[in-house]
Structures are given as C-alpha cells and as structure tokens.
Design a protein around this nucleic acid. Structure first.
Length: 731
RNA sequence: GCACCCUUAGCUCAGCUGGUUAGAGCGUGCGAUUCACAUUCGCAAGGUCGCAGGUCCGAUUCCUGCAGGGUGCACCA
C-alpha cells in the first residue's frame, strides 16, 4: 500500500492533444448529460436565459458565417449556463423557400432537368427529401462546432405546428385589415418565374442608351422603346408652360401611331414629371414601370401588357412578338430610326437597374395579383420598441440603419410563385379575382360575387414564416416554453439579414404576441478572407469551417472566429489565424501537463500557507478574470478572447510557470507547496474561463484535474461573481 | 441623390465614457533552446493614429469641413 499519496496524471495528457478524437467523445458526453436541456440543470440554475438559433438553411454545408453564429451563441449560452442561468438555446432548420429552390434548380439543371417540366407535387417531394437529408447533415455539423443547443426542442420551419402558427398570423393580418391582395407592379424574375420583394433585388448602375423619340407633337426620352406598345398616356409637369395647352387633350400620334398601332394618346399632367429631365415629356407605360403604374392608378389609365412572364414581347407588339426584351429594344430603335422617328440617342445615360439577387437577371416589372402586408403600422410599433429601449442593438450603428429602413418601408409582397414553401391558405375567385384568407379550407364560393374559387397556387415568402420564428419555435401560444422563455434574450445573426429577418421578426413578434421577440440584437459581419475579399466559390477563397475544424480542431476555429471579430464589422479569416489558435490549444494542453506533473505529490485537501508573491499572483488573476467577465457582459467577446489568450500564454505560461520552476525544484517546503497551489489554482480558473470559447479542450483537461466531487465543466460555476449593478446593455 | 460605417505598425484589427512613453496577433530581423510545448523562449525594428480647422489645461478619442474606401436605401422616363 502506498503511504505517499500521488495524484495520477492521465496518460492522455502525456501525449499530444488530439482534437478530433477528443471532440467527438466530449460532445457525446455533453449530449448524454442532458444539460443542453435547461430543465435538467442542477438546482442552482434558476433564472431563464434564451437564444433562438437563426435556423440555417437546410440546403447545403455550413459556411463560415454559420460557424460565426454558432461560436458566438454557444459562447454566450455556455457563459450564462456557468453563471447559473437556465440557459436554453433552441436549434432549428429553415426550409428557406426561394433559396433552396434555387439551389435545387441548379442541381436539376446539372442533371439536364427543369422544374417547369415537372409535376409540382413531385418537385415538392424531391426538394423535401433533399432538404431532409441536408438537415440531418447540417445538424451534425452544428454538433461538430460544439453547439450546446437543446436538440430535444429542435424545430423545422415546415413542422405542422409552425405552419399552423404562420396560418393564424396570416388570418389575423387579414382580419385586422393589414393584408390585401391586389394588382401591383411586382419585381418579376424571368428566370426563376417568381416575384420578389424589394429586398430580393439588387440595384446596379448601368449605362444605357437613352432614346429620344418623336411622339406626336412631343419628343420623349426613354431607355425602353420596346415598351412603347404599352404606352397609354403622355405625361408632363402641370407647371410646364411649353406644353400647357395639351393638358387633358388627346394628341394625334401621326407616323408613330401607325408604328405602334394607336392613333391618339391622352396627355396628363403630374408633378412626378421633372421639367428639366429629358424633354419634359414622358411616355407612360403603366404595365411595365412602377412609377408609371402609380401614375396610371392616379389618373385611371388603361394598362396594356406587352411583355410576357418570360421577358418576351407578346402579340400586342405585332412583328416584335416573341422577341426578348433587349433584342426587341434594338430592333424597335432601328425601325424608329428608319421611320425618321428617332430624334437622337444619348448613349451616356447612367441609371440603375434592378436585378434578381440570385441570378443577376434584370427584373421585369410586371403587374400581378399578389398578397401584400401593410407594413407601416407594424413598423411604427417596431420603431417604438427600439426607441423606448425595449430592444437594444449592440452597436448604435445598426439602430440608425434600422430606423432609416423602417421609416421608408414599403408594403411587403409575400406571394411567391414557387412550389417549395408554405402554401398560402387562401381562395381566389375565378370571376372577380379577389382573394380570401381561408386557413380552415372552408370557403367554397366567392364571398363577394359568388363566383367559383380555387386554391391560391402561391407559397409564402420564406421570411414571412421565419419572421415569426422566435414565438413559433417556442410553441406560441400554449406551450410552456413560450410562456417561460418568451421574450427571448439575445438575437444573434448576420448583419446582412437585418431587414430580411430581424426587422420582420420585430414587426411580426410584436404584432402577434404583443411583446418584443428579443431584448438585445447582436449582429456580426461578413467573414472575409485574409485580404478582405468576399468568400466565393468562383474565387476559390472559401474557408470551410468543417474542414478547418477537422484539420485544426473546433476550439482553434472558434478562437479564430472570435478574436478580431467586432460586432457589426466584417472580419478577416485565414487558415494561418486558425493555425495560430491550434498552437494555443497546444499551449494550454502542455501547460496543464506541466502543472499536473508538478503537483502529483500535492495534497489538495488543504490550502497551504501562501507566499506574498503567490497571493499577489492570485489577486492579479482575479482582476484579469473580472475584466474578462465585464467584457463578455458587454458583448466584447473579441477582447475577452484576446485577453485570455494573452494572459494564459504570455503571463501564466511564459512568466508564472517559468518562475515557478526553481521553486518547484527547490527544497524549501513552504515555497514549493505555495507554488503548487498557485499554479493549480490559476490553471483551474483559466480552464473554466476559457471554456465558453474553447469548450472541448477545457472540458477534457477539466476531467483530468484532481478535484473532488467534480461535475462537468459545462455546468461548473463561473470563477467570479459579479456585482449586481447590471447595466442594461449587459448580457 | 440620401443614409450609415471605415481610414491607427508590412498585413488583419483593438484602443470602452478624452489624460502618463498608442496596443495585440500574424509577418520581419537577431539571438537562445536535451529543462511542459509536432517547438518554444528572449530581444528588436516598425506608426507625423487620412487631411485641415475647432472645443478643451489636454484629442487617436468630441465637433465641423474635405479627401479616399466600403455598405445600405432610393431614384427622373
């Protein structure tokens, strides 16, 4: 029997650190512990804390942006859990309507197939299978990144209860008069064959020829001569003396009339027309231009559609029928020239053109009957929630951007002509074209005219459902989770979806539940490469988080994603950076080995007499941890991570451990024990503090520490308590 | 056009409410290293904190203007 007590150093620690083996094993231990579910947490965890995970699109691998949100949210959740909160992180997956459909269409294209030749139901089922397998794949990737979310509460945006909630909201909007179906000019993508919201288009500056066309007694300037067949008026400014006599009259078009197939056109006056621009006279094409459409409504003009949904001219254009818009443009211009109707061409005209954010094809403004949400009243309340401080942005800059958008918000087109999505629960009248919300599927004839009705074939804009995510995912209105965890605490997501998602969640959250969906918004920027270039497959500069995690360990990846990542600004990521933190993991590993090997004979039951020098070290440590804690509380994770890195490496390892070597080797008993205790104390404290940042390696080392009645590190108590003077911008 | 952000060492960025010699990581140079370290350690070089004003005892930090870069929103055919 050993008379001398000896702490055994785990033999794993004597070998180099193996992240891959460790991470898989540790994650399993966490998952099996049940602690991801707040209800399984020990007694001391009382106050609630929730984050709803931005559900990743279930249509591919996780990219660096996903890795950022996983890292930051997991860091927050782990920190709060250690601080004694009943921390809940609700994972989810998004069917991501249009996005997924686009991804799937590309896949079909590669296979030489097309969605337009497929039965919609068959297509839907195929995409469903595709999404389901991607979803499982994606969830495992989340595990690889160490996400300590509660899988038992995982939701999918196409779950029956989510759809039910979304339908109820649709009905409520309808009942409250905040929903309307109407013929409007929508942004039509001729490739994807669907309308898009304002946000799903990008404006690009282009230089196009501006054609000056002799138009009866006027000359008008236009970039789209091919729409001339849809002109139903000429507009001038009411104060324009040059044309005052023509107001309200019909003018003979003469030669041009033969050309476009109508003899006369009405002249209207509207402030919209700028006297200084072009000739001061504008041709009005209500069916193919948003501004003209608005004028058309105001002046009750006829709308004549001349471009079809494939972006080709239709049979109202005579010989041009069947031509694509840009082909027709050139031809019409040439023919006008031949006919002597083209006065001049200004070929340096700069203007901006909207295009589809996915395929970059020019948007064809098109009149369609669609569902719109009246956003102004919702935006009003959303802005109030922010200005009153009920919702706080971590950086002020986003508050400004948010208000700017909210003040100028337009009604939201929520109809999409794609199969992959939640079907809009509505009936459309065959006769009068009116639409009616019908979530119970009970309307059999048109309530207005008694006509025959059919199911709305469209699906919801995916953001309409994800905009309801926080309360829907928690089981609004009856589920206990909703009652306990809503409003949630922090919404952390990419700044690029501030309008798409965050703003909509605020509007719909307040509208449906009467409460804000979350109290704090933390937005991270884009992950760029080391040269600050956007990552893209074509540039070949994409850093795959999963690949990096497998090569250098998730902990290293996580540190690389936190250090230098300030809220709201884009961050630069390089493989070298990740490698650097792999070295850090190595450092932690080896320092731990050193401490444990040198405390083998130490009796951890009693605290030895401390030397003054060691007392000072412990005080300094406490001050450091306090500072780091305050940084975390104030969302300065980049600072906290850097300080931990710096303190561990350049203070603890380089100075404290180095200096301890002579004392450990020395014969003076008191000195040696004091040093041993101090080293161990500092190590254990740092391991705890680093845990939210680098959860795997710290949990592993923790398991080696000779501490009695040890629990998992993930539920250990945070090393210091904070004063209770919480500032409102704190976690 | 309107709005927002950025401009600090070769690169990527910190610098919180203005206060002693402006910091980190990476990179570079020189040296050390059989002692926990698929390395590591020490030392060093390197910045008129975009430009011009202003407020202040004092500004990288606050204000104004300008220049350059970026992003968002909108738009007159």
């Amino acid at each position: 029997m050993n008379t001398e007590k000896e702490n055994v150093v785990n033999e794993k620690l004597l070998k180099p650190y193996d992240p891959k083996e460790t991470e898989t094993r540790i994650y399993k231990i966490w998952e099996e512990s049940g602690y991801f579910n707040p209800y399984n947490l020990p007694e001391r965890h009382k106050e609630h804390f929730t984050i709803i995970m931005p559900p990743p699109n279930a249509n591919g691998s996780l990219h660096a942006g996903h890795a950022v949100f996983v890292t930051i949210e997991d860091l927050i959740i782990r920190y709060k859990r250690m601080r004694g909160f009943r921390a809940l992180w609700v994972p989810g997956a998004d069917h991501a309507g249009f996005e997924t459909q686009v991804v799937y269409e590309k896949k079909l294209e590669k296979e030489g197939r097309s969605r337009f030749k497929m039965d919609p139901k068959e297509l839907y089922q195929e995409i469903m299978d595709f999404t389901r397998s991607n979803k499982a794949f994606m969830e495992n990737q989340l595990r690889e990144l160490g996400a300590s979310c509660d899988w038992s509460r995982e939701k999918f945006t196409l779950d029956a209860d989510i759809i039910k909630t979304v339908y109820k909201t649709f009905k409520k909007l309808s009942d409250d008069g905040l929903l309307y179906r109407g013929k409007r000019i929508v942004n039509w993508c001729t490739k994807h064959q669907t309308s898009l919201s304002e946000l799903e288009t990008t404006a690009e500056e282009k230089t196009d020829p501006l054609y000056y066309i002799k138009y009866g007694p006027f000359t008008v300037a236009t970039v789209r001569p091919e729409t001339i067949f849809g002109d139903t008026a000429i507009a001038i400014n009411p104060h324009d003396k040059r044309y005052a006599d023509y107001i309200g009259k019909e003018v003979e078009l003469g030669e041009l009339g033969h050309f476009i197939g109508r003899k006369k056109l009405k002249v209207i006056a509207d402030e919209y027309v700028d006297k200084e621009f072009g000739t001061g006279a504008v041709k009005i094409t209500p069916a193919h231009d948003p501004n003209d459409f608005a004028i058309g409504l105001k002046h009750n003009l006829e709308t004549v559609e001349v471009v079809d949904k494939y972006g080709k001219l239709n049979d109202k254009t005579g010989k041009y029928a069947g031509l694509k818009v840009d082909e027709a443009r050139k031809l019409v211009a040439e023919d006008l020239k031949t006919a002597g109707l083209l006065e001049k061409i200004d070929d340096k005209y700069k203007h901006s053109v909207k295009s589809c954010y996915k395929c970059a094809k020019t948007i064809e403004p098109k009149i369609m009957n669609q569902w719109f949400v009246k956003t102004a009243p919702l935006a009003e309340k959303a802005m109030k929630a922010v200005s009153s401080g009920k919702i706080k942005f971590v950086t002020e800059k986003f508050e400004k951007i948010f208000f700017h958008w909210m003040k100028n918000i337009q009604d939201w087109n929520i109809s999409r002509q794609i199969v992959w999505g939640i079907p809009i629960p509505a009936k459309i009248c065959n006769k009068c074209e009116n639409g009616f919300a019908d979530i119970e599927d009970e309307i059999e004839e048109c309530p207005k005219c008694g006509g025959e009705v059919y199911d709305d074939p469209d699906t919801f804009d995916t953001w309409f459902s994800s905009g309801q995510w926080p309360f829907a995912a928690l089981g609004y209105p009856d589920n206990n989770d909703y009652k306990i965890y809503y409003p949630t605490d922090v919404m952390e997501t990419g700044s690029d979806i501030l309008f798409f998602w965050v703003a909509r969640m605020i509007m719909l959250g307040i509208y449906v539940t009467g409460e804000v969906p979350f109290k704090t918004i933390y937005l991270h920027g884009l992950v760029r490469d080391s040269e600050r270039q956007k990552m893209s497959k074509s540039k070949g500069n994409v850093i795959s988080p999963i690949e990096m995690s497998e090569k250098y360990g998730t902990d290293a990846l996580r540190m690389a994603l936190i250090v230098g990542n300030t809220p709201g600004s884009d961050m630069a990521l390089s493989e070298d950076k990740i490698k650097g933190y792999k070295h850090f993991a190595n450092k932690i590993w080896n320092a731990s080995r050193f401490v444990l090997e040198n405390t083998k004979d130490f009796d951890f039951d009693g605290k030895p007499e401390m030397t003054n020098e060691d007392k000072k070290l412990i005080d300094e440590l406490a001050a450091e941890i306090k500072e780091i804690t305050v940084d975390i509380e104030n969302y300065r994770f980049y600072l906290a991570a850097e300080k931990l890195y710096h303190y561990f490496w350049h203070n603890f390892a380089d100075v404290i451990i180095e200096k301890s070597k002579t004392r450990l080797a020395g014969e003076k008993k008191g000195e040696r024990e004091s040093a041993q205790w101090t080293l161990f104390e500092i190590l254990a404290t740092l391991i705890k503090t680093i845990h939210p940042f680098m959860p795997f390696i710290t949990e592993e080392i923790w398991s080696f520490l000779p501490i009695k009645n040890k629990r998992l590190l993930m539920i250990e108590t945070w090393p210091i308590a904070l004063d209770n003077d919480k500032k409102h911008d704190q976690l």
